[in-house]
């Protein structure tokens, strides 16, 4: 399988704090990668560099046809193309509160990609149907539950037709009974063949959906492989400790 995403030597510091020291991994097209690691290990930062929300200090990221070497100056056009490759779903959805669900979803296609509005609306309705929110198109975000808001966030990212979807703990801000709906939508996307990188603490979900698990620790990918291996028989003591703490917190 060809790799849709390859990351080599990714580095990122905030002032004196070196968060990503040397991150490298590959994501084959059509697969799901789950990223795990302790709080503060840099999972969010890593995901944000993949969308250039945070600019990496060094490292080469190839997504689809776009390759960027962050050690070099990057021009705006390249950065825009790079960013357009991936859709980002935030931990706290970050929906536009002053726009309806439908308006949230068509904002990017119409305003940024300049697609015809009628077409964008048709697409958006299909997407909203897909995430189970066909009925909610004309509601404002405040009228939705947290899980529904998160699913609108997913539809908004999908509407731009990215090649790669990035999720940052999409369920960790949700009430437990709302988690399932969101995970189900992500599972469906996996079944549809979407390539996804998902930062998550849902170990069971990672086991079921992921083709590959990355354990990030100390600014590097300490361990990676199929879920059965990384989650089932981790080879590093750090990974074992981490899993133990998550699975048996008390």
């Amino acid at each position: 399988m060809t790799d849709l995403l390859t990351v080599r030597g990714l580095r990122k510091s905030f002032g004196d704090l070196q968060v990503l020291r040397d991150i490298s991994f590959d994501v084959p097209a059509g697969t799901v990668t789950a990223v795990i690691g302790s709080s503060g290990s840099g999972k969010t930062t890593m995901l944000r560099t993949l969308n250039a929300l945070d600019r990496a200090d060094a490292g080469v990221i190839d997504i689809g046809s776009v390759s960027v070497d962050f050690a070099q100056p990057v021009d705006r056009a390249t950065l825009a193309r790079f960013r357009a490759q991936s859709g980002m779903v935030f931990q706290s959805h970050n929906l536009f509160p002053h726009r309806t669900v439908l308006q949230n979803v068509i904002e990017g296609p119409v305003i940024v990609q300049k697609r015809p509005k009628a077409e964008a609306i048709e697409d958006a309705k299909v997407l909203l149907e897909q995430v189970g929110l066909g009925e909610k198109a004309d509601q404002y975000p405040y009228q939705l539950s947290g899980g529904q808001q998160q699913r609108v966030g997913i539809a908004r990212a999908l509407a731009l037709r990215p090649t790669l979807m990035l999720f940052d703990e999409p369920t960790s801000a949700l009430d437990p009974e709302l988690v399932g709906d969101v995970l189900r939508v992500i599972k469906d996307l996996a079944a549809d063949g979407w390539t996804m990188v998902i930062v998550t603490h849902e170990i069971r979900f990672a086991q079921q959906v992921a083709d590959q698990v990355l354990f990030i620790d100390g600014g590097v990918v300490l361990e990676s492989g199929p879920p059965a291996q990384v989650l089932g028989e981790p080879s590093h003591a750090r990974t074992r400790q981490f899993l133990q703490r998550i699975l048996d917190p008390i």
């Binding site: 969308n51 357009a84 980002m88 970050n94 929906l95 509160p97 002053h98 940024v112 908004r156 731009l160």
Partner: peptide, 27 residues
């Protein structure tokens, strides 16, 4: 206006002026 609003606009490809006009100022 929360930083997340700027970031959400940025990830859908909006520039500074468009973000101000369509996301930040209306709020």
């Amino acid at each position: 206006i929360p930083k997340g609003q700027w970031e959400a606009a940025q990830t859908i490809g909006m520039g500074y002026a468009t973000t101000l006009q369509r996301v930040i100022l209306p709020q």
